[in-house]
Design a protein around this nucleic acid. Structure first.
Lengths: 143, 143
DNA sequence: CCTCCTAAGTTGGCTTTCCAAACCCACCGT
DNA sequence: ACGGTGGGTTTGGAAAGCCAACTTAGGAGG
């Protein structure tokens, strides 16, 4: 059988390799330079160079020059890249709840003043999109 | 510098390897047996065996025997595993919007009757948890 | 001028994973 | 006894990953 065609698989083609999401985490934290990303993630420099190149060609990051003479650049998020924040948020939430022991290294505060506890909801009705509340519909098949 | 301690990194230690999330996708789809997962994802059998073993020891999946005499088992989601559904949902959403071309292979219908368009919101106020609405707070620091 | 320093990678050498195909074992139906 | 199925393990070569050292291109200090 041929593997299932699926947006999860497509997404993982781009950001599913080791270090890609951690590099993106650093960019979300404002650490947009090569050495900062390398230091904060622990990725080896050659792999980081390869990952950044891939993320740039995939349109998730873009290289922005911040100094012409010693030519230096930072990596900035594109719209596509910013949209990945939700993925990192849910991954962090899962890690907080089921993996990380004890004191959470980081919490987010939402603009409402509370500590963020993220929930995934249906945009139409606002109710939680729990596993049980969902049914798979065969995309474009008329019933 | 030592790499940042972070729940995203911890989460990726468990589910960040290639094929782990795709294997879990299949289990969410109800394909809980080895050969089904192998066929639908395209992962090689030895890697799948290693990933499943890791997910079981990490408490994301559990082996459930469904036949004693030819001893056969299925892989079932634990609570921790079910909690990963949100991550897959957001990854699928990002893939749908920024990676997959053309007709989406799969859509979910929410119990409210509409096609699911997932949003991440703050549990306290219900407002969207957009990138701009969040500030990092230093975890356990008393203000 | 000579040397050291920083940023952003490259390069070389070694180790680990990955993958495909073959093999294995226990059972089942015929 | 013979082939088929389910759930893996083994094997051997290809690919990717890791680390340390090197490079390039321009400063800064002396």
């Amino acid at each position: 059988m041929t593997p299932r065609s699926c947006s999860v698989a497509n997404a993982l083609e781009i950001v599913g390799e080791r270090w890609s999401l951690l590099a993106l985490r650093e960019v979300f934290f404002g650490n947009t330079r090569f050495d900062q990303i390398a230091a904060n993630t622990g990725v080896s420099r050659d792999v980081l160079a390869a990952r950044l190149k891939k993320l740039v060609t995939a349109g998730v990051l873009e290289k922005v020059q911040y100094s012409t003479h010693p030519p230096r650049h930072e990596y900035h998020l594109t719209e596509s890249g910013r949209a990945l924040h939700n993925v990192l948020l849910m991954l962090k939430e899962w890690g907080d709840q089921y993996v990380t022991e004890e004191p959470l290294p980081l919490v987010y505060e939402h603009s409402c003043g509370n500590v963020l506890e993220p929930r995934v909801v249906c945009a139409s009705c606002g109710e939680e999109a729990s596993l049980e509340s969902l049914t798979r519909a065969p995309a474009s098949a008329a019933s």
